[in-house]
Amino acid sequence: MRYLYLLLVVLSASVLFYATLDFPQWGDPNSPASLHVSPVYLQRSLEDTSVPNVVTSVLADYRGYDTMFETTVIFTAGLACFVLLRVFAPKMKDTYYRHIQSGVVLHIKGQTTLLDGSRDFERIDSRWVPADIILKTISRFLIPFIQLFALYVVAHGHHSPGGGFQGGVILGASIILLSISFDLRTGLEKIHERGLGLFSATGVFIYTGIGALCLILGKEFLNYGVLSKILPVDPVMARSLGIFGVEVGVAITVMAVMVSIYNYVSSEGRLDEGL
């Protein structure tokens, strides 16, 4: 059987090699790929959209429609994890609470939500291991900076490498860091499952909504230029702003979905203690 697999792999590889015979040299500036459409992007990006980062302008404007679906793909992944993994009825029979100041753990037989509101107690898992103090301190210290940087990456996508996806991922990572270094419940306290769900839908909604807004204003879908009708700017700047709006939407969705995928996967959908 193993030989069959190897044969299959070799077969595919040989087709790949065969295809390569005809390829242009690596880095050849005169390859067809570099001559047909891409020069247009490089030449027109500034005058069309006033965005110096051509990757961003292609991403969110010339091929903005792809990117909308790309965001939807992310959203879908979060949705899929929700549908597949989320268990609404927890199977845990007993509940454990920890008194924060003293570290005493209360074991309560049967389900209870009696102490959930109390600030002195936190609900924990039976296999709970106290979070490390060094980890906690450092991450508490780092997370604001990470988040600030994330916002910068989102906002500065027009001028430097960055944009919604990258920023969103960094933002999500900061929250995941919180969940890892403390526990999942702490992360969920900062941003609840409901919030994540709504955020993930809102982000994509912003993207698609901006597109639909262009439609309502009488032009093609995602034709940001028409936004100048409602914004006090000229069509080129309107495109730039449109791109920015879209990037924000992307960032929100990516952040929310990243965190919720982590939440569902790490807790097998129970959203209890996590890793």
Binding site: T67, E70, V73, A80
Partner: peptide
């Protein structure tokens, strides 16, 4: 050429998403 970068941003996202769904299935 900026276009492949753009395309690959999409492909990366797709691969992350597929990875997520596959993990969810593996957990199930």
């Amino acid at each position: 050429n900026p276009l492949p970068h753009v395309l690959m941003l999409t492909a990366i996202v797709v691969s992350v998403s597929t990875f997520g769904v596959a993990l969810a299935l593996a957990i199930m």
